[in-house]
Design a protein around this nucleic acid. Structure first.
Length: 371
DNA sequence: AAGGCGTGGCA
DNA sequence: TTGCCAAGCCT
């Protein structure tokens, strides 16, 4: 009878793969450089890790470069106005990260003399640093033998051991497996290797198992069904909410903007006046809900998908006298919108009402119908 | 402890 | 087209 042997996965086999196939990323020190004693800058590692939370590498690269150019050290970031940090973060999403980034930089500067703690526990105590980021920074920046587990690692581990328990219930077991596999030597490279493997080989769909350094040790592959793992709990349906957004332009070419409250959705970011966003189909989407009286004209709709709901915004536009109104916001030159902390949904709304508003950045193609 | 919290790319 | 997914954290 034919037998299939499963070997034990080893850190050595993964590290050998990583030495040949690692990704070159701006915040990274390559294995070859590390051999020559070059160490990564903890500030760079931390900044990249926070940006990479639930965010893809291509999306992060430009922001990482921009932040480093503007704030070369953690002290510089700590001294920056929060509004500047929020504006620089605009478009990257999950804006609580930017608020915590600033708080963390302040804490590192004020309480740690401008140096990041070099232990997992010390890092974990800082704002915006959870289990994953604490382990990642400890391992990558400080060569601590920390078990690093993100969604990539979860996928690799769940396949390696064919773990049938759904996420997130399976996390503790997976973390145990990662800890057992993590070596004392090169724990940072091991962590990055696991994530690179998940990103380039052990992908969600159509994994390239023939190229995988674990293909002689993978239980899911032996079962001929790697895509079956990880098993995840069923997701909920996304509700639809709707509301209206009001784009007012005055005779000086300025647009009326407001600051959102510091917490919650798009907290602390800039917006054009909007109604509340409710699940109701009728109401609150007409010009009657405008923030101030003006000749509000329908300017189409914008659809934007958030993590937990889909938003359909009716856009209204009005041309008003110069600085005709002001109470809770301010008039900003349309030519200066790029410098504002406008989340993508607000850029979409403004672009729908003023098609030329964002000439320097991407266009938002999905303009809604008029009415 | 389950849900709130953005965005863009991809098949 | 539509759903899935991404180096999670906070409350």
């Amino acid at each position: 009878m034919m037998t299939t042997t499963i070997e034990s996965p080893t850190a050595a086999s993964l590290l050998a793969w990583y030495d040949r196939h690692h990704r070159d990323l701006p915040w990274r020190v390559s294995p070859a450089m590390a051999t020559r004693g070059i160490r990564p800058d903890p500030y760079h590692i931390w900044l990249s890790e926070v940006m990479l939370q639930q965010t893809t590498v291509p999306a992060v690269k430009a922001y990482f470069a921009k932040f480093l150019e503007r704030w070369p050290t953690v002290r510089d970031l700590a001294a920056a106005p929060t509004d500047d940090v929020m504006a620089a973060w605009a478009g990257l999403g999950y804006y609580a990260r930017a608020r915590n980034l600033k708080k963390c930089a302040e804490a590192v500067t004020a309480e740690h003399g401008g140096r990041f703690p070099d232990t997992e526990d010390g890092l974990r105590a800082l704002p915006g640093i959870g289990d994953y980021t604490a382990a990642a920074v400890a391992a990558i920046a400080f060569e601590r033998q920390a078990a690093v587990m993100d969604a990539n690692v979860e996928r690799v581990i769940s396949r390696l051991y064919a773990i049938a328990t759904p996420l997130p219930a399976a996390k503790p077991l997976m973390k145990q497996k990662v800890a057992l596999l993590t070596p004392a030597d090169r724990p940072g490279d091991f962590a990055q290797a696991m994530m690179d493997l998940g990103a380039t080989i052990c992908t969600p769909k159509r994994p390239a198992c023939s190229l995988c350094p674990f293909n002689n040790a993978c239980e899911a592959l032996r079962l001929h069904d790697p895509e079956h793992f990880p098993v995840k709990a069923a997701k909920k349906e996304k509700p639809v909410r709707q509301g209206a957004a009001f784009v007012a332009v005055n005779g000086d070419g300025e647009i009326y903007l407001r600051r959102r409250i510091a917490s919650g959705l798009l907290g602390g970011m800039t917006e054009v006046p909007t109604t509340g966003w409710t699940a109701r189909i009728d109401g609150e989407t007409s010009a009657a809900a405008a923030p101030f009286p003006a000749d509000w004209q329908p300017a189409g709709t914008v659809t934007h998908v958030f993590t937990h709901f889909e938003l359909r915004l009716s856009i209204y536009r009005a041309q008003v006298a110069s600085s005709a109104f002001r109470n809770d916001g301010w008039w900003e030159p349309v030519t200066n919108l790029e410098a504002q902390a406008l989340p993508t949904v607000m850029k979409k709304a403004i672009a729908q009402a003023i098609p030329r508003a964002f000439t320097k950045t991407k266009t938002f193609e999905k303009a809604g119908h008029n009415s």
